[in-house]
Design a protein around this nucleic acid. Sequence first.
RNA 1: GCCCAUGUAGCUUAGCGGUAGAGCACCCCCUUGGUAAGGGGGAGGUCACGAGUUCGAUUCUCGUCAUGGGCUCCA
Length: 647
Amino acid sequence: MGEITVNLPDGSQKTIAEGATGADLAKSIAQGLFKKAVGLQINGETRDLYTPLTNGDNVKILKAEDADSVELLRHSTAHVMAQAVQKIFPDAKIAIGPTIEDGFYYDFEIPGHTLSTDDLSRIEAEMTAIANSNQTIERYVIPDVDNQLAEFKTQGEKFKAELLQEHRDHTPTLYLMKDKDGKTIWNDLCRGPHLPNTGVIKNFKLLKVSGSYWRGDEKKEHLQRIYATAFWTKDDLNAYLLRLEEAEKRDHRKLSKDLDLFSTHEEVGPGLVFWHPNLATVRNIIEDYWRAEHRKRGYDFVFTPHIASEELYKISGHLDSYGENMYSAMDIDGQPYRAKPMNCPGHIMIYKSKLRSYRDLPVRFAELGTVYRYERSGVLHGMLRVRGFTQDDSHIFCTPEQLESEINGILDLIDALMSTFGYTYKAYLATRPADSKLGTDEEWAFATNALENAMKERKLAYEVDEGGGAFYAPKIDIKLFDAIGREWQGPTVQVDLNLPTRFDVNYIGQDGNRHKVIMVHRAVLGSMERFCGGLIEHYAGVFPLWLAPTQVAIMPIADRHADRCHEIAKQLKAQDIRVHVDERSETLNYRIREAQVQQIPYMLVIGDNEVTSGQVSVRQRRIEGSKVMGLDDLTKQLKSEIESKQS
RNA sequence: GCCCAUGUAGCUUAGCGGUAGAGCACCCCCUUGGUAAGGGGGAGGUCACGAGUUCGAUUCUCGUCAUGGGCUCCA
């Protein structure tokens, strides 16, 4: 019997018997290591602990409580859950049960029973019993696929049969779960890897039930999904559950009720948002800032109608390719008209209203354009997914030579806006989808290179999302990360290879001939609804001073101080500072508390001392205690803080 | 659209086959207070909407609407 040598993470080498598994390796190093070992990383890939090693492998033994091994834990916990479900519902058929970010799910078909949250605790109890019985989990290469197929079919496991049929040439494996007598009590077609046994599965939680479809296809079997998660330690699990709670506290729909931000109404219809004065104030300030940043960068502002003859959307092709998201036609003087789903055709109309010379280019049209799109009722969500919304939309018309520098300018604008709001971001270059038949290879290459070169020039790190582009355009997609690290859909930049042709959008070149224009779509904030909804969560309702709906609350201690409060309010208002005098006959404590709860950044308390001295007593929302200062000094401080747009 | 859950006063909610109670908010009165809830009183609900079962429905059944979770992460 020969020997092999494997490399360990610390750089050392270990010689073991040929055919030895990771478990043997662990034992040969230390019995304690073997006890803790739950899996392996061989040449960077996570594998079962009992995988036979080969000469020269780089092997890391994964221990319980290693961050790298938590996927093993979750995947195996998914099997324990599936086993528990089949024990409770013997007719249940199992579909797939992958790990996902922060957890896992498993899909089932359960004839005659629909899962509810009440079932989750029952299933959890059964899972605990299974985990505690310390079943071993063994990889088993299916020796005879047809035989196994027949067995799945006998068992009614049609989903597993379908999967096995598909993977029959890829060395399909079962994972067997065996009791302490070595008897197989459950198996799952699975590629693994898995833990060696269930005994280490202790900290898991079933989170929610939902519907799903076999292979994500609405036309196929309807399945029931259970979402769950598992961690190595109780602390990690609790920390995760706490994080979910934190996110819930930031929910813009909840904060909207506390801070009086927006509403929707049954009488009006779902997905249509009403902006209350507080949030409208925030939006107006953002829009003013947005306009100022665009003006600096040479954009021209335009407005376009909310409805248009269907003819327009026939030319643009939206009726064909986007018709499902458009509202049905309304009859105007016998002609069909549509609510606007996109701003681009309108901007093209303005561009085409006269002949354009290359000397006029680039032309940059920007509009806070309100559009209406049909979204399926089940996907609507607060302000984040709605049916009527305002895009910060812009279209740039330029020559091929100008494209790269235009994209560069857009990236600069994106960076300015996103950093002001305190978002970090990550860029993706989305390239031509495999099934896109539109445009020539040369056009795609040209547009894609321009996007890529602009990012390189700015030293903006990016990843390539192969085939992730729109059918008509390669694009740069930017993902935002908010204050608690959650990801949001952010700005997008697209080089359109479709509309300039459809609308015959051109310019007269230096040579006196007509040339097809290059058209770039871009949105930075996305939609005002989604952006502001996200911003509420990002700031947890604590808007920085420059955005705060009310910036200063002024409170008289007693009625006799009210006049002085109004004088102060008048002076601050003259400086464009948003103030509110709270002269209700409530106690000072009460009014302070309310201002705190409302996240008003500055509170001024005016009593006998202040009236006499002409000064103000200033309290800040996140600072205990107060300090007395002159009104002019305070005004200067406020103006500079507003100017800086700091959080 | 599909699956599951939910819908009681502006908000948060209790309740249940015999037509509803609370806290906060609101209004009034007392209190004129020095930095996160002073006290008392009052008003406010066709129990989402529609139908059915029943002597009787907010409660049970069905339908509709809305809201929430999910329907992408592929043995």
